[in-house]
Design a protein around this nucleic acid. Sequence first.
DNA 1: GCGGTTATCTACATTGATGTAGGCAGGGGT
DNA 2: ACCCCTGCCTACATCAATGTAGATAACCGC
Lengths: 204, 204
Amino acid sequence: MQRPVSRRRRTPEQAREEILRAAETRLREHGLDGLNVVDVAAACGMSHATLLHHFGSTAGMRRALVEAMTDRLLRDIIEALRCDPGPEPPELLRDLFEALSSGGHAKLLAWLSVGGDALSDDLSPSEPVRALFAALVPTLAERLPPGPDRQRIAKRLIFLVATAAVGYGVAGDRLPRLLAMEAGEAERFPAWLGRQISALLSEP
Amino acid sequence: MQRPVSRRRRTPEQAREEILRAAETRLREHGLDGLNVVDVAAACGMSHATLLHHFGSTAGMRRALVEAMTDRLLRDIIEALRCDPGPEPPELLRDLFEALSSGGHAKLLAWLSVGGDALSDDLSPSEPVRALFAALVPTLAERLPPGPDRQRIAKRLIFLVATAAVGYGVAGDRLPRLLAMEAGEAERFPAWLGRQISALLSEP
DNA sequence: GCGGTTATCTACATTGATGTAGGCAGGGGT
DNA sequence: ACCCCTGCCTACATCAATGTAGATAACCGC
């Protein structure tokens, strides 16, 4: 009887890639509970033993996922900041907001914030990102009203946009209810913030 | 041999309160993994069966914790906004930032963002909070430069502070490394944001 | 085509966490 | 002083998830 099971043989790279993609989807759609080996393996049509063969352990898979998502986050930031290479800082900040707040990335940071202790030592800085920000800061600074410490203000503006983006991605759908606001308010927030930054930079 | 075990008999309210306090501490210090019945029960010196006696199930305990933390979050916001009842909106916004970004509350929102599906329908709005914000918005608005929609701007300012606070609480320690910034920058951010809001409100 | 490598499978062992059963004991009521 | 209610405990049952062992089959090189 035993009908022979269909087997797809992947290269190790293919396999790891498929698995991590499925894992990320499950993280978005089912939260942390979705990140167990059985479900993730099922989601890409393999047995959980095969998954363990590739990643060694559940923790190994999760570490790899953090690493992959962090890489992608940084790549997205780089992409966002580079696709508009001309001196248009407001657009850049809007793109930064977009990159940080969009679904998966905010979930990653929320996970790192609330997840176990084993993950916190990752998330290393990256040279290209450092270079990009090193270039972004003065570009932004020279659009600011003159003053002794425009550089510092520029950095803090970036930081403001980044924290707002993360907060928006993590709790943007819950905060309006929490603060007794109309739901539509939240959706218009990113565009508004972009306009504010624009105005702030072009005003004086 | 069997040494008689010391038993403290609590009222159900005492027990629930102790358990939830311990659970919240464990959430802060060990993340979601710390929220199992055995460890939480051990943390307040009882058997896990006793904990289940009070909350029915692990999910029941977690639901109760979400509810309690949400209540406390709202109470903290109310407290923050009321302890300075005079018309000093910048202080209010700073207090709001403080209330939202401080450890436990940001962890709660991160948890809700990444946790299972069973929790998302809680977090109901609350009448006193609605009243407070209804009062805060016009107070803030009349400090803004005159214009057709100061109310809307006031709301968005509040929303900006709130998202920034949540993002700061969730990822404030990781963002500097991610964005290749000096670590000290993050610590000075809340105070800076407060000053900015002050300046924005008293300027024109 | 043949063989070796290894990705993949099934089946099982193990662990940890959840939930249950039944009895013990603290404290208030009478 | 007694009794009852119920909070509390020990011990066990169960289940889900992790990880392991050994067999099998897909592909690549010869």
